[in-house]
Design a binder for these strands. Sequence first.
DNA 1: GTCTATAGAAGGATAGAC
DNA 2: GTCTATCCTTCTATAGAC
Lengths: 190, 190
Amino acid sequence: MAAGTKDRIMDTTAQLFQRYGYTGTGLKQIVAAANAPFGSIYHHFPNGKVQLGEEVIRRSGEMYRDLFEAIYDASPDVVSATSNFFLGAAETLRQTDYADACPIETVALEVASTNEPLRKATADVFDSWIAAGTERLSEAGIPEAEARRLTIVFLSALEGAFVLCRASKTTEALEVAGTHMAETVRAALP
Amino acid sequence: MAAGTKDRIMDTTAQLFQRYGYTGTGLKQIVAAANAPFGSIYHHFPNGKVQLGEEVIRRSGEMYRDLFEAIYDASPDVVSATSNFFLGAAETLRQTDYADACPIETVALEVASTNEPLRKATADVFDSWIAAGTERLSEAGIPEAEARRLTIVFLSALEGAFVLCRASKTTEALEVAGTHMAETVRAALP
DNA sequence: GTCTATAGAAGGATAGAC
DNA sequence: GTCTATCCTTCTATAGAC
């Protein structure tokens, strides 16, 4: 029983991947931070680090999509929701000393040319985010093809702003990109 | 003398960092790919991997800024130059099986929370790119504050599109983001 | 100054006691 | 199924022969 050793390992791994990346996070570091014995990793993830990585990537993707949905549910319209998403991300960055941005971005770049199952997992996550954004913008009256393009620009601007903000330890890029994206969504509304 | 063992090491390291990141690239891997003896690294870079990393980051930043300048010099106006930059990046990605995107992006995310001198180096490089873009857009008649904001959105969209394209092994995000940014620059011209 | 050999730590993975 | 001890490889870094 317990409160879930496997869940604790996955939560810890998700946070470490977000901050230090895939190759930058060791299995010994994970079990130490999760207060779990080393053997638990291979008990719950028989295929080792790759299996753990894939499960964490996919679960982080779902959780971040849930956050996206929650912010759009809580906002009065898609324009303010777009602005709120960027501003919320900026606030989180400041509160974590510029450590917690996108949960899978660092990993995605690391594995893109080195690990096919993990690359596929990150691609699936990005696809699911694009689908979620496209649906929101479509519901707001934007034709679907245009809604998809807008969502891709939104996600590109967000991920790129994360890179600039983490490197500079400022939130300027997220603020500038968020303002631009909110304006762009407003201009696309019918 | 020689054709430059140090240059060969730096060229090789730059390419490996771009594809596999900082932690994903080993010193032994570097000297093997550069056909150099292991000791050369510590002869030319007494402070080891961090010093090599910093010099490579800064030099890659200069080379990519030169590419940016060259494309803007070769284009008839800033709108087509913006489009050309994204399309050229997409073509390079396709030709390298989605390996060669931004020369420092993966490293920037890896070191942001782990290595202060390297984080500072990536921040300086991004700053120099923003300055170069701001100058180009200012020369085209866009007020400087607005030119800076536009450049930050440009760079965010580019870096984010790189992530999506490398993960998905498609160039859709670069094409969509490039079209959007060219239109945005056009709308900002006087 | 070029190059080899190796130290010492950390990496992922495994075996097996309990 | 929890946990420890250990294996083998790879990593960065150093020492020292030539």
